[in-house]
C-alpha cells in the first residue's frame, strides 16, 4: 500500500542540525574524508567544536614523561567514565557536549587564608602550563597513556594559602542535572555531586596535576573540561573531573565511591597489583587500545610505576589496610 501525505510535512526540531555540529562541519567533513567516521559512532558529539590550542612547555620533572606509546587521541576521548553522562564508556563522548563550561569558576574555601574564586580565564592564563605524559590506570583494569597539559595543583593551592590546620583537600564536580543526563537516572545510586579527596601532602606532590588540556588543546568535555585533577599513581576515579569546588579541611573527606562501597573503594586507592578489588584482580591491566586477539595485557605496577616518586608518602602504612 502506498501512503500519501496530504499536507506539507513540518520539519521536526530533531531533524535540524544542532548548532555545535553545524559550527563543526569542517571538522566533520575532514573526519569523513579521513575515513574515521565509520569507526566511531559518537563522533558527531564527541568532537567539541571549540578546543583551543594551548601554549606549554614539556614537563621535565622526574616521572613527568612516561615512555610508553601514547593512547591515540580518538581512544582517549571516546572511551571514558564520566557517570554524570551515563555509565557506558561511549556516553560521555555522546552527551558531555550538553555541559556548559563557559563561564566557569572554581571556589576555593575552607582552611585557607585567602578563600576565593578562580575564573577559567585566570586558570588558563595565570599558571605556567606544561605537558605531562602519564600512565592512567582505571580501577576497572584498563589503562591509557595520556599527554596532559596542566600545572601542579600545589601552585594553585599556594595562592590561597592553606592554614597550618589544613590536612586534606576535598573536591567536587559540577552537578547540573539539566545538562547531565546520567544524574537524572533513577537507578543510579551515586549521591551527586561527585566528590573526591586527597591528603594535603598528596595534593602538594609535584606529580599531582591540575589538567586543563590533553594532546596540546583544551580538554574535551568528556575528559573533564575545563579543569580536572590527574593523580597518576592512583586509580582513575580519584582524578576528579570538571571541578567547581576545592575545600581544605582538617578531616578526611568522604568520597563518592567510598560512600557507595567502602569495602571496594578506599580513600587512598593507590594503584597496587597486590591489593585486589573484591570483584576483580588488579594484577594486570589492558593497555588500550586492546583487541580480542591481542588483548595487550600488561602487569600492573605498584603506584602505577611512580613508586620512586611517591612511595615515601606512605612510609609505615599498611597498604592493604589503607587501600
Amino acid at each position: 500500500m502506498i501512503r500519501r501525505t496530504r499536507h506539507v510535512p513540518q520539519i521536526a526540531s530533531s531533524e535540524i542540525t544542532p548548532e555545535t555540529v553545524w559550527l563543526n562541519r569542517r571538522n566533520l567533513i575532514k573526519a569523513a574524508a579521513a575515513g574515521t567516521m565509520a569507526t566511531t559512532l559518537p563522533t558527531l558529539a564527541s568532537q567539541t567544536p571549540d578546543l583551543k590550542p594551548l601554549s606549554y612547555v614539556p614537563g621535565e620533572c622526574d616521572g613527568c614523561a612516561a615512555e610508553e606509546a601514547l593512547t591515540p587521541l580518538e581512544d582517549a576521548t571516546s572511551y571514558n567514565n564520566f557517570y554524570e553522562f551515563g555509565t557506558d564508556k561511549s556516553d560521555p563522548a555522546e552527551y558531555a557536549h550538553n555541559m556548559t563550561i563557559d563561564p566557569w569558576s572554581v571556589e576555593v574555601s575552607g582552611l585557607v587564608n585567602k578563600p576565593g574564586k578562580l575564573n577559567l580565564e585566570d586558570v588558563l592564563s595565570g599558571f605556567d602550563l606544561e605537558e605531562r605524559v602519564y600512565r592512567f590506570r582505571c580501577v576497572e583494569a584498563w589503562s591509557m597513556v595520556v599527554p596532559w597539559i596542566g600545572f601542579p595543583l600545589a601552585d594553585l593551592l599556594q595562592r590561597f594559602e592553606p592554614t597550618a590546620d589544613a590536612r586534606y583537600v576535598a573536591f567536587k564536580t559540577l552537578y547540573r542535572p539539566k545538562e547531565m543526563r546520567g544524574t537524572r537516572s533513577f537507578t543510579s545510586v551515586i549521591d551527586w555531586p561527585y566528590r573526591e579527596g586527597l591528603r594535603l601532602d598528596e595534593a602538594m606532590h609535584p606529580l599531582t596535576l591540575m589538567a586543563v588540556g590533553l594532546y596540546g588543546k583544551t580538554l574535551p568535555n568528556q575528559n573533564g573540561a575545563p579543569l580536572r585533577l590527574v593523580v597518576p599513581w592512583k586509580y582513575g576515579f580519584k582524578s576528579i573531573k570538571s571541578i567547581v569546588s576545592i575545600e581544605l579541611t582538617d578531616q578526611q573527606p568522604k568520597t563518592s565511591w567510598q560512600e557507595l562501597a567502602a569495602q571496594e573503594y578506599g580513600f587512598f586507592s593507590n594503584v597496587n597489583p597486590e591489593v585486589d578489588h573484591p570483584r576483580w584482580s588488579q594484577r594486570y591491566e589492558r593497555r588500550l587500545p586492546s583487541s580480542l586477539f591481542k588483548p595487550n595485557r600488561v602487569p600492573t605496577q605498584l603506584f602505577n610505576g611512580y613508586a620512586d616518586q611517591v612511595a615515601s608518602l606512605y612510609t609505615g602504612m599498611d597498604l592493604k589496610k589503607y587501600y
Binding site: T39, S78, Y79, K89, E140, W142, S290, S291, L292
Partner: peptide
C-alpha cells in the same frame, strides 16, 4: 565488529 575493528579501544568490555 571484531573483524572490522569497530568495537572501540577496549573490545573486551564490549564483547
Amino acid at each position: 565488529g571484531v573483524v572490522a575493528n569497530t568495537l572501540g579501544p577496549d573490545p573486551a568490555e564490549v564483547l
